[in-house]
Every structure is written in structure tokens, then in C-alpha cells.
Design a protein around this nucleic acid. Sequence first.
DNA 1: CATGAATGAGACTTCATTCAT
DNA 2: TATGAATGAAGTCTCATTCAT
Lengths: 239, 239, 239, 239
Amino acid sequence: MTAAAAQPSITDRSVINVNPSPKTPEFGPRQRRKQARPQELLDAALALFVEKGFAATRAEEVAQRAGVSKGTLYLYYPSKEELFKAVVRQNLSNLIAEGQELVACHQGSSAELIEDLMRVWWQRFGSTPAAGIHKIVLAEVRNFPELAQFYTDEVMIPADRLFCSAVQRGVDRGEFRALPLHDVAHALIAPLIFTAIECHSFGACPVRGGVTIDPFTGLKVHLDLLLRGLVTRDDRAPT
Amino acid sequence: MTAAAAQPSITDRSVINVNPSPKTPEFGPRQRRKQARPQELLDAALALFVEKGFAATRAEEVAQRAGVSKGTLYLYYPSKEELFKAVVRQNLSNLIAEGQELVACHQGSSAELIEDLMRVWWQRFGSTPAAGIHKIVLAEVRNFPELAQFYTDEVMIPADRLFCSAVQRGVDRGEFRALPLHDVAHALIAPLIFTAIECHSFGACPVRGGVTIDPFTGLKVHLDLLLRGLVTRDDRAPT
Amino acid sequence: MTAAAAQPSITDRSVINVNPSPKTPEFGPRQRRKQARPQELLDAALALFVEKGFAATRAEEVAQRAGVSKGTLYLYYPSKEELFKAVVRQNLSNLIAEGQELVACHQGSSAELIEDLMRVWWQRFGSTPAAGIHKIVLAEVRNFPELAQFYTDEVMIPADRLFCSAVQRGVDRGEFRALPLHDVAHALIAPLIFTAIECHSFGACPVRGGVTIDPFTGLKVHLDLLLRGLVTRDDRAPT
Amino acid sequence: MTAAAAQPSITDRSVINVNPSPKTPEFGPRQRRKQARPQELLDAALALFVEKGFAATRAEEVAQRAGVSKGTLYLYYPSKEELFKAVVRQNLSNLIAEGQELVACHQGSSAELIEDLMRVWWQRFGSTPAAGIHKIVLAEVRNFPELAQFYTDEVMIPADRLFCSAVQRGVDRGEFRALPLHDVAHALIAPLIFTAIECHSFGACPVRGGVTIDPFTGLKVHLDLLLRGLVTRDDRAPT
DNA sequence: CATGAATGAGACTTCATTCAT
DNA sequence: TATGAATGAAGTCTCATTCAT
């Protein structure tokens, strides 16, 4: 594994940061506050939704955590449902763009590319509260039909395309065996999401005797197995 | 892969069937109902919890679906929370025992053993509404501290133990490379659960253009990759 | 005070015992049980109503305490309200008859007569669970309009008449000063009932630092004060 | 009896009025309501609890009578139980202080002091809906263990102390015979409370033929008897 | 007669949402 | 804009009462 995470194309601006200009300096603190409101509300909502789920999170709690009153929340989001959808959109859109870039300009082997994809994803997203979103989405999609379509279009399909392209690259270059593309992509995505969700569910509960695995290490082992199964010939020294 | 599913010890009686032989068959319909009530209520609750989540499922709905009135539900379960816990217990507790047996008496290679474990799991559980439980548990553990412990003790640890023993068997017999045991077990369990959750979340939503993968096929591909990465030497013909 | 309680006219058959023939010997235990049911139910209800009040007493509890099933209770009393009224009637009717007899044949002074009345009342009633009934009646009359009339006719008026006659006797014999009859009777009744109620409310609660007075001693002091205020001339030696 | 009720220390401002001077008078009607709400709710609750008892009073009724909606009640009191306790506190806590003051500065004889105590009590409390509270407390203490302690500490003990001090004063000045202090105090308190309870139970029911006594007159007769029994020598002309 | 499973009206309480200030 | 008091629909749970066995 080479240090792909240091690639210049992957800048430090957070993928989560969506608020276009959080630091416009020509406004007073009052104005700045007003500008920041939606973001603060979304952050508060994100944290609470991830912690307690959609139904168990009260609108007033979100407002309090964002430092505003209950009424103000409804000035920005017309309902709790819309707030939830905004949180999902905010945190999961634009998730894939960075990865596309990475695939496009990666110099190393395809195995390294995929390892890099995983590492970047974990740094930018998996180890972030935003990853907890997927947990709630899974639990709530069936109650939010519009979300299913949005999420499919915005997250699932791009993610599939991203990983498919990386796998295809490996196949095209003779590095990977030719296997059903989507299934392989799925196998690569699964551990990422699964691990992230675990961190935000059981990982956050104080249980005695639980099977505790360092998420990132676990991910690497999982990925090593998958890649070793995927490559036509393993050039690496045996572990 | 050999047909381990035909092993005599793994019979076809459903793990869910809990009242196989009511002692006296001469009961009137009232008595017969009474015997069946808990199971009917658990089934109704399972279906609704998986579909809508814990909070969004109303107690009265569960009762209606089971064909009884609101009050009757509370005759059997003292609260919605207890009902939920009963659903979890009912559907997951006996899940692991069968697997243990399979590991104990399996004749084939360890790769085959793990493939058989997966197939049995899918038949008995994955393709069943009960597979949606993990989704709810993930979403709700942080609101049910006791559930976290129960689920850890009753499901997570036994499942880990089960897969660890299967992997260890492979290592001991020289079939598998020696890798961190728990991480490998985790890598084997992850796709099972992940697939189950997907089936009961996005898989149940009508989206256009979604990345539809046959769950069982996807599982097999995932497992093939993992096993190929795990074995010291692949005896099978290239796919 | 002389030992009027030993007067022959006051026999040992309880004033509470209303069941006409509890000991008819020619029935088997099943029959006897059936005969005793109403009484057992009333006793159970009495105890529970006094302890918890009308609303907080559940029909099923009463049945359980009487050793029968919920349905059986409704075989004897068509509703919880009727059960309550039956308990009241059972325990408070016929309450006065004995006293009337006592007034009619008392030989001593009127002060002694009243002291005897009090002592008998306390023995037969005040120190009995039945005395707790008055507490519930007070709390519930306004919800049971019919009960108000019944209670007035059956208890209040006879009690007033009883004590008025005793006071009148004292006035007629020149022992008591001539004062408003009903008010004096009321003053004599008040401490009896008040004390009984206290025993069944605060007296039954575990409070620290409570003002604990022995009920019977308190009653005697109260009565002594009243009588001393009532008599035209006190023949007793100063206390 | 001298007119102790005219004592300057005992003014006519109601003991119930708790928000005498809202600090800023320029509030809109919304604000003004907010200030008054707790009192309005307590008044409504008092009336209904006294009329129907604790259990038979529905939270919504209280809210309606106070002119607000169900939810608003819960903005001020977290449960019906807390509302009940608040009613008790509000109406009884400040009850004793006035009496203490009266004892401290009374100029007349001890008999007159006690008569004044009674008269003030009746004016301030006995003739007020608040007098019905003791009835509910008696009926409910056994269901509210904490209430028993609170009521004992806040009402019973202070009342006992108050009357004991008045009696002791009489004994010290040679006006009263030396009798068991607590028992005498109890005898003085009993008619007060007993009368109050009667007014709010049978006294509020439309019965024909009931023994109707003017409560205040009845109280006076009762007290006259007690005092005449208590004094060492009666200076008053015979009634 | 006796049982106890079943019912469903009704009570308490919560909380998303509104709106006067 | 911002507030937070007020609302009332909705949900959980209880329990008096019924009725098939």
C-alpha cells in the first residue's frame, strides 16, 4: 500500500462542508450567525438523529443543541421530516465526487487504488458522524419513500459506478479476474458501510464482553481478503 | 460445495415454531387461540417492526394484524418495549445452535463448511422476515441499553464464536492462512448481515434504476472472494 | 366511669355480622362456600377500598383476595359501584340499633351512658376495619348521589337521634345543661368519627415525626372535656 | 370573646394570592396569562379535586376549567400527581404561620385566644374551598407515601405545635387545667377539620331530611364545651 | 355456577407545529 | 427574524365488564 491519501488531488476541504461561504468577513456577528443557522441546525440534527433515531429525536432538542428556540427551527425547515431529509442530503450528496477524481488519476495498481479509496472514504466519511446517517436511512427509508429514490440516485448508484469503474480498471489491466462487476463492487462497499454502522450502534453502547474490533484494522483485513481473492496473481510478499 | 443443507441434524421444522405439540388436542377454538396468541403477536410485531421501525409501529396495529384487540396484546406483553425484546429473542436466540452443530459434524473442507454455514443461514434466516431484525436493533440499541447487552450476549458473541471456530478449523487443518481470527470472522459475518439489512430497507422500496443484485448471488460472490483470499491453496478450477 | 361494656344487653354477636346463618351445618363445604361468597367478597372489598380508595381498587384484586375469579365477582355484584354501595350498606346499616338499646336500659348517670356509648362504639366499630368506610364515603359521596341519601337516612339521622336522646336524657334528669341538642350531639359524634378516620389514613402510613396519639386515650380526653363542659355540676374528683 | 380577628397582623389579603405584584405591568395579554396560569390551574384543580376526588378528576377537566388546553396543564405541572401535591402545598403551607403570630401577640385570656384561632381559621380557610383538601388527603395518603410525610411535616406537626402552645399558655397562666397536651390540642383541632370535611362531603349533597347544622355555630358549641371543660374556673356568665 | 380470555372506552402524557408578541 | 406559550392529535397503557367454555 502506498500513501495515496497524500495525493494532491484530494484536498482538505471537507466533503461535508456544503455551506458555500462560512467565513465571509464583511458581516457582523449577527449576520454571520444567521448565515450559519442552517448548518448549525443540520449539525445538531445529525448528531441527535444518529444517537437516538428519527422518532426519538425531538424537534426542541435539536433547536436547543443548535442554540436557538423551537420556533426558529421551523423558520428554516418546515417540518421534522424535511429536516431529516435535509440532513440526509447534506451529508450524503457529493459523497462520491472525490472518489471519482481519485480513480481518474490514480497511478498505482488497482489493488492500491481500491485500498486508497477505502482509506479516503474512512477518513473523510466513515469515521465521521455523518456515517451514522446511513444507519438511520436504513431504518427509516420505508417510512420516507421519496428518500429511497433520492438515496439511490445520489448515493447508491454513484457509489456502485465508482467501485465498478475501479474494478473494471483492474480487469482491463489484467490485475483482477473477470467477475460479475456489480457483485464485486457490492462486496467492496459492504464492509465499509457495515463497519461504519456498527460504530454508531453497538460501538456506542457500553456492553460487557462485546466483540470489539478496531474498525479500521477490521476493514483492512476484510479488504485484504477480498483483494487477494480478486487479483489474478498476488505480487505482494505473503503476510 | 457439497449439500450440507441435507445433513440430518438440520431438519426442516422451522426455528420459529415454538409450540409444536400442545399437550391436549381437545381444546375448543378459544383455547386453541390462547395457545397460538403469543406466536401470532410476535409474527405480527416482527413484520411491522421490520417494515416501519420500532417507534413508528403502533401497538394497536400489531394487535390488529394478529387479529386481536389492543388490550389483548397487553395480556401477553406488558409493554411495547417488552414485545420488541420478545421479538428479538424469539427470532435470534435459537439461531446459532444449529450452526454450532454444523461445524461440529461437517465432513468436507473448511471452505465448504463456511459456504454451507452461509447457505443454511440464508435458508433458515436470511430469506425470512426475521432477517430484518438486525436493522431495527441497530437503529434502536442506543435507546435500549439492556437490549445492547442481551443482543451482544445472545447473538453477537455466539455468532463470533461460531465463525471463529470454523476459521480456526481451517487454520488447524492447514486450509486457511493464519490471520487475526476475530477480524476474519467479522469479515465473514458482515456480508450476511449487510445483505439481510439491505433486503429489508432499500430492497423493499420501489425505486427506479436501483442497483439490484440478487442477494444470494451477491453473497456467494462475496464469500468466494473471501474464501479465495483465505485459503492457502485453491484446489478448485478457476471460475 | 363504670364498666358499662359488660352490660348484658350488649351481646357478643358482631354488629357487622349480617349474613343470617353462617353456620348452617347441613350443607357440604361446596354449599357453605357458595353461601359465604357474598360475605367474603364484601370483606375483601372493604379491606381494599379502605386501603386504596374506590378508584384505585381493581375489581380483579377484590376477587383474588376473596379467592374467586374476576367473573365470579360479577355474578354477585353487577358492577364495581354496586359492590361499593353494598360494602357501605353492609358495614354501616344496623350500626345504631345496639346503641339505642343501651340508651334505653342504662342505669347509670348520663355522663356514664355517653362514655359507655363511646366505648362500645369504639370496640364494635371504631377499632374495626369497617370504620375506614366512613373515610371512603366522605371522599366519594359526591360521586355517588344515591349513597348520600342512604347514608343520611341509615347512619347520620339514627346516630344523631341516638346521641340526642342520650343528651336529652341528661338534660331531663338535670345532669346536663340545656344546650342546642343537635350541636351537642354533633360534638359528641365528631371525635369518634374523626379518630377512626385518622387511624385509617395517616395512622396507616409510615411517617417519621408524626403526632402519634393513642386513639382511645385521645378519645377519652376529648370526651372528658366535652362532658365536663356539659354537666351542670361535676361530681367527680378533680383530675 | 374579643374581636381578635381585627388584629393588625392578620390582614385581609388572601393567603392564596401568591403573585401579588408582577414586576413589569406593561405585558401583553399573553404574558399576563402566563403569570396567572399556575394560580388558575391550581384553583381549578382544587375545586375539582375537592368535588370529585383525585382519581375521578381528569387532567383535561382541570385544564378546561382553567380555560386552557390539556397540553398547557402539562407545561406547568409534569403530572397529575404533581399537580395534586402542588394544590396541597399551595393551600396549606402558609396556613399555620398566621396562627403562630396570633398566639404570640394575643392580649386576652387563653380561652379567647383559642376562640380567636378558630374564628380566624374559619374565615381564612374553613369557609373556603381549600378546606376540602383534608378530605382528599385522607382518602389518598395511602396511595401517596411522600404526601403523608409532606403533610405531616407541613401541616399536622405545625398545627399540633400551634395548638399545644396555646394550651400551654393557658396552663402556664393558670387558666387551664394541666392535661395531656397533645390530646387536648388534638381535641381542639378535631372539630375544625371534621367540620370542614363534612361541608365538602355530605354538606355538598342534596339530601332530604339531613341533619343540617350551621357549621360555624356547631363549631362554636363544640368549642364552648371543650373550653368549659378545660378552664380551671369559668368567669363567664352561664349561657 | 365459575372461569379467565378478550374487549375497547377512556385516561394520562408527549410532542410536532402554530402564532401572538 | 426570533421566541416560547399554547395547542390538540395521537400514542401507550389500564381496567371494568362481557361471554364462550
